[in-house]
Computed example of a mutant assay.
Amino acid sequence: MSYYDAEQIGIRCTLMRGGTSKGVYLHEHDLPPAGGERDALLLRMMGTPDVMQIDGLGGTHLVTSKIAIIGPATVEGADVDYTFAQAELDKPVIDYSGNCGNISAGVGPFAVDAGLVRPEEPFTEVRIHNTNTSKIMIAKVPVHQGRAKVKGDFAIAGVPGTGAEIFMDYRLTAGAKTGKVLPTGNRTDMLKLESGQDLEVTICDVANTIVFCRAEDIGLRGDEGPEEINHDHGLVQRLREIRGKAAERIGYASSWTKVDEESPFLPFVVFVSEPSAYKTLNGQPTEAKDMDFKARLIFMNRCHESMAGTGSMCIAAASRVPDSIVNQAMGNGAAEKETLSIGHPSGVMHVVVKTRKANNEAGMEIEALGFGRTARRIMEGTVFVPTGGGY
């Protein structure tokens, strides 16, 4: 951290797109220690709270209001530590309870370009210790002339053009927060909603914790987009209740009504439905034959514009749990494929999942779990933060 004058602090930062998210990547030793002082600095840096984030680096959407803090590894078997921070938009909240798979995709390239790992060509494997979940992810980063490659022919739905594929290996993230793939020990549970409805759900914890339900059970088609969902106040409150009831069930919140205060990030809510044709956010047609099912992910009470990387990993794992909500939504034969195709608001995401039958609660064990992303450094420089903000 460098003081440039009496009124502002200058901190080096890198703005990166990771997958379908964008965030500020920071060196841990440039920041105050974890705690209130750091949080106050990050809030001011992002321009939160303000839905426009006009006085900071945030981009007015949750997917562009993310932070990655990178430092030396503190556990054996890792190359770097990575802490994910989600800045809220309209509330003074910095949340560390979960990870972001898309932002994770930028950590390997950042570490290579910042000299935190020794580059090897054509690929450098970066073992990333995510401090939020205490799990290790492995990023296979394409490298050329000692730098992370940017150009390539790999495309992901929700990002224009193509780039160099970074494969993210998540097979070590089962039980990310609770230590169990199925935190309740059940493949499905019933949540009693305030309306009196008994809603069948699956609560799964791989990469991040998600409560799954069927779109039709909450009065939806399954092909709704973010605008349709986010502007429906009644629906948002219903999804918040589902999230809160699941959070209370697994001990993330003392009461479902306190979920936004006690666990604002996790669990996500995902509602799934069978394959069907729909148009993406960009108006492009997506055909039923291109997907195994549709999924819409809700985090911090807003619909994700595409699909969270960690969300896709939990979805993929849940799809292999016999009789789970996700497993029931899949088309014929999808449970046997090693590439799962998830229809989301921006298109279709393809993930790798391979499991074997096991005599446990989930009925399976994970052998392979991962997905391809692209990432790109957009800007490197100094972000200025006014002094006097509690840091």
Rank of each mutant, 00 (worst) to 15 (best):
T382I: 15
S195H: 03
R356T: 12
T173C: 06
V211R: 06
D232S: 09
R147V: 13
G35W: 07
A334M: 02
C13Y: 14
A247I: 08
P285S: 13
F123K: 11
A318N: 04
E88T: 03
S319R: 07
H304N: 02
E125A: 08
M46S: 00
G47E: 03
V326S: 13
I315H: 01
M46N: 00
Q145A: 15
G251N: 01
I70E: 02
P264E: 10
N332P: 10
K337F: 02
V259Q: 02
V117A: 11
F384W: 04
Q237G: 07
L15A: 15
P386V: 02
L199N: 13
N99F: 11
N130H: 02
P345I: 03
A155L: 07
K279S: 13
G98R: 04
T257Y: 15
L239A: 01
P49H: 00
L220T: 04
I366R: 09
D198Y: 14
G146V: 06
G331P: 03
Y252T: 07
P32D: 09
I250E: 01
G381V: 11
I242G: 09
V181S: 06
K140R: 14
K357C: 02
G108S: 10
M349L: 13
I69Q: 08
T280C: 06
N99P: 11
E7N: 11
D323H: 15
D79P: 13
V383Q: 00
K337N: 01
M1G: 07
V269D: 05
V211M: 08
L369H: 02
N186C: 14
L297C: 12
R44F: 04
R38E: 01
I342V: 09
M46Q: 00
